[in-house]
Design a binder for these strands. Structure first.
Lengths: 363, 363
DNA sequence: ACAAGTCTTGAGAACGCTCTCAAGATGCGC
DNA sequence: GCGCATCTTGAGAGCGTTCTCAAGACTTGT
């Protein structure tokens, strides 16, 4: 029925140009020893016939696969995922990776793996065997998952560990969490805050610790206390609500909170609103991540801008450039910036007689 | 140096189980005629060795590629893309596609193509040759791009056209834009609104027209006017600002606006705030898309929930199920719902003497 | 002008899989 | 128990590419 369009193969080009397969292959791959005249002739044939090498065949004969694999959690339903959209790393990472891969003639594939169970090894192993990617990108918390990193190292597949600075196989990349937290805290101190709390992420993420470190360092440098000013969440909204309430209950004099994720900080914003605290006049808020949602909250949140897309982009470039070797384990740091929006201001003046510039919000 | 782990091939399994390659292949692919006893033996070997067929090799020998390709605009920088995150279709589509592909043993790849110029043909052609995908997913406005659909039809590659209901090659899927707009408008009428404006999307998107149709139909059914109540934007924030201002300038008695994208509606929200109009008490707003950002605006927006992820999911399933044939061109409609949040309310009572329930917002 | 190189080109095998086709094993009807 | 049909198994070719290696063409130095 349908006219089956025969794919143009290297053989067609060879015949058309009157040369051998090998010569065409050399031209395509920029091989070194081809007479210019012949090369042009072959190129003309390639253009005329619209030849493009088949990735599958290339892979078969031992060349690269031109595939970079990004590992992600499975066990999320569509609804789950929709709920996390715009909130999560996934999309930013995808876009950074896809764009950069595309620019280098690579493709990015996302592999969903059940990272929690010990199926990891089997599932990931299967994906690696099937796809034979030229590189793998790991994001937290997978970057520090032994099972995963060992499997990759064993198979001799180059991989990037984002959000990990431990020595060992794989290219470590970080986003300057410690300095970012230090910067955010310092900014609040500069504004006059003296009670600055933090809602941290879960401890199995190294970056949670780094952020706490930066916060503490800034506090210490200014001679400010941090006892009882730390709460731990799981990056999700509900945990942020819980943490913010606990902090506010405990410290009546709290004037600023740094949240370790946009979700948690947004939750803190909600808690503040519920308690009649105006942000930023009564309470300043700084968030971590700077995903799109914080631009549209009321007020828009000041946030540490985690350069996720850029970091993934760097990771891809590293993987492509290094190829199969790569014992260089210098940590690559893509620094985070602070985007000041409207959730930060000087703290309210302490004397109760002194009225605020405006009404304290709804009761 | 590094112990190069030899990949487990079908040959290894064959030797291990003491059978021929062909038998292993049959077991792997669920071939029909294998003695149960032998099959179990082969399966045991497969498990023991951890054999997984190489996709590249499978593809080479004429089988499927197990790849679904999603076409997207190139010509976006990382910054561009970050700005659109959480706002755009891309991520929702990606996630729906990736998840569904994964469930069926397929993979989704995103191909960035310069869809505007006439490079399309060359770029897309190259991608198709290189990847040889089993199916392609087109989103608006590519779904209606002749150059693209023709190329795909010519090559005999199954493809889905999301947001298109025109006859022709490819599986058409829509998201009930007409009824969704009708529903949204009816809801506003029900609340008592009589002046309901729409900020539509650009006309090269069929769905823009469908939404206008639904809006008009609801208005007509209620005997309400629509003259001068339509503005056209480009889905972007700036165009929403322009459109909202124009509408508000023109009609002092306007009490509701339907925006054809979250960005545009958020812009309208901002314009309302600037003019001292409280949402929803002075002005009701309904948005289209329901991307994550509208949950966190103040107030959260009532929105038509475009089931993008679900639609892409359906598209993937169709492509996988149909395989190479597919002359069934019945339009598949995944209906959109309306998520009511806090940007809709009855219109203010017309008599100027009647005070609102609260202050009219900042000047 | 001749030997010893370097460039250029091509022939053939190999990659891991599935397809086609033929041969052997097994079942059925009488 | 024999002939035929059906099941089961395997051998070999082929998919489109790159790799290895060898042969021929062209330099260069003397």
């Amino acid at each position: 029925m349908a006219r089956v369009r025969k794919t143009v193969t290297i053989r067609d080009v060879a015949e058309d140009a009157g040369v051998s397969l090998q010569t065409v292959s050399r031209v395509v791959n920029g091989g070194p020893n081809v007479r210019p005249q012949l090369r042009d002739k072959v190129r003309a044939s390639i253009d005329r016939l619209g030849y493009v090498p088949s990735l599958a065949a290339q892979r078969m004969s031992g060349s690269r696969s031109y595939i970079i694999l990004a590992i992600n959690d499975r066990e999320r339903t569509l609804a789950d995922w929709r709920a996390r959209l715009g909130t999560d790393w996934v999309d930013q990472m995808l876009l950074g990776g896809i764009l950069t891969c595309s620019q280098h003639g690579y493709r990015m594939m996302v592999e969903l793996v059940d990272t929690h169970s010990d199926h990891v090894e089997r599932e990931l192993g299967a994906a690696l065997s099937a796809l034979q990617p030229d590189g793998v990108i790991l994001t937290p918390p997978h970057s520090e998952n032994r099972l995963i990193t060992q499997l990759l190292a064993e198979r001799n597949i180059p991989f990037a560990r984002i959000g990990s600075n431990a020595p060992g196989p794989g290219i470590p990349l970080t986003m300057g969490d410690e300095s970012a937290a230090h910067l955010a805290t310092s900014r609040l101190i500069e504004l006059g805050h003296r009670r600055i709390a933090m809602i941290a992420g879960p401890s199995q993420y190294s970056l949670s610790g780094w952020r706490i470190d930066g916060w503490k360092r800034a506090l210490d440098e200014a001679g400010l206390p941090h006892d009882g000013l730390l709460e731990v969440g799981d990056f999700g909204y509900a945990s942020g609500t819980r943490a913010a309430r606990a902090l506010l209950d405990r410290h009546a004099d709290l004037t600023a909170i740094i949240g370790s994720s946009d979700q948690m900080t947004l939750a803190a914003l909600e808690v503040a609103r519920d308690r009649g605290l105006a942000v930023p006049h009564d309470l300043s808020l700084i968030s971590f991540d700077n995903t799109p949602i914080v631009r549209f909250s009321q007020p828009p949140l000041t946030a540490v801008d985690q350069p996720i897309a850029e970091t993934v982009s760097r990771a891809v470039e590293q993987l492509i450039a290094r190829g199969p070797d790569g014992d260089d384990d210098a940590v690559i740091e893509v620094p985070a910036g602070l985007v000041e929006r409207s959730s930060t201001a000087p703290p309210p003046v302490e004397a109760p007689a002194q009225a605020h510039a405006h009404a304290p919000g709804r009761a």
